[in-house]
Design a protein around this nucleic acid. Sequence first.
DNA 1: GTACATTTCAAACAAGTGTTTTAATTTAGT
DNA 2: ACTAAATTAAAACACTTGTTTGAAATGTAC
Lengths: 217, 217
Amino acid sequence: MVNKTTTQDKILDAAEQLFASTGFADTSLRQITSMAQVNLAAVNYHFGSKKELIQSVLQRYLSVLMPRLDQEFSQLLASQKQNDLTAVLSVFIKPLLELNKVQHHGTRMFLQLLGRGYTDVQGHLRWFFNHHYGRTLDKFVLLVQQACPDLPASEIFWRLHFSLGTVVFTMASNQALQEIAAADFNENVEIEGVIHRLIPYLAAGIASPLTLASQTH
Amino acid sequence: MVNKTTTQDKILDAAEQLFASTGFADTSLRQITSMAQVNLAAVNYHFGSKKELIQSVLQRYLSVLMPRLDQEFSQLLASQKQNDLTAVLSVFIKPLLELNKVQHHGTRMFLQLLGRGYTDVQGHLRWFFNHHYGRTLDKFVLLVQQACPDLPASEIFWRLHFSLGTVVFTMASNQALQEIAAADFNENVEIEGVIHRLIPYLAAGIASPLTLASQTH
DNA sequence: GTACATTTCAAACAAGTGTTTTAATTTAGT
DNA sequence: ACTAAATTAAAACACTTGTTTGAAATGTAC
């Protein structure tokens, strides 16, 4: 037997694709099982419920990505040299692009899914993520604080969430954006190109000087 | 008879609140009509369909906001002086905050709805917006281009969408963010405060210098 | 090959959805 | 006050959703 894909994997692959393009709420189990060419009941048999299927789809990527990120963060924290913001943000690039190895269109799909996960959110995904990977996130925040010693913690909080918005939104609507860019500017940017445009934008925003306005409000 | 609120308004008020907190897809007409204390069929009678109700909820704000913005943009375009980015972005502040006059928690609700509208999007809202307010949007893009003459149009395209992501995401999760900020930093920031933190962040990101990386990808 | 556990399958289930229908009621015009 | 239009009301409709059931099929160990 060559290259036997299990029922679980067929479901995960189909679900991933449909969730990314249609969202979690607007994708039915019947769509998923039909595309995966498995029986409807297989989802509940193998994953328990739709909610657990959603988590499994994300977990397939997160379980690879997050330990890698954690390791990179720890390494940067250990090296005592002064890290600038661009360097800290660039840590994401390699681990993210390596997701293409776990699945065919790994990076793009995963980021799009992550976008969906944060916007469709009813709560359980947010909890799931913080519960499993909160420690890793803390290391990242610490690195940003070290790179921006002049910014108060509250300001960094807001700016990191602003940045999260940029990333999440860009990735959730990545496909549409790339199509527009291709049509309007004859630009064929892969996901890698978007990431490289993103980092200087984010770095400039996060490190922007404190203004009088932002202090008095 | 004093202060008679029509059925339509009762529906709009309830729908607005539920859409903002639960999203469009996850809010049922029965929830809406029950909160509004009107008959279920009233939605289809007065608005035609759920889809049209969603558009009406947004339209109540957009029909006030967009003409005001359009006027401000035209005014800036007419004045021949060199506009810097912060000035262009600041144009949004006053018209946005004036939405509080059309409804009690106007600005916050509207921005949260707008966030939902762009993330839940199945397409019809995006079309609706571009169809009605595309011209106004073009003026804004022109102003940004004038403020950043060194940036190619394609780069501006990407950075404006990055910024859109920040705004949309921040507003969609505005309530949660304010609660966290209040708990962690003893900060009680109103919507106005968030906007004033947002503008320098966005301005710095949009105007960030071109790097080698962003040019070669 | 028999026995046991795992997996697949078709069908039904219970609950929820947006929408339509038909009749009752209220409102407005003359 | 009468008539006609606009609005409200309760009920049913047609459909989709996630989940469960119980029997058939498949795989595995002895």
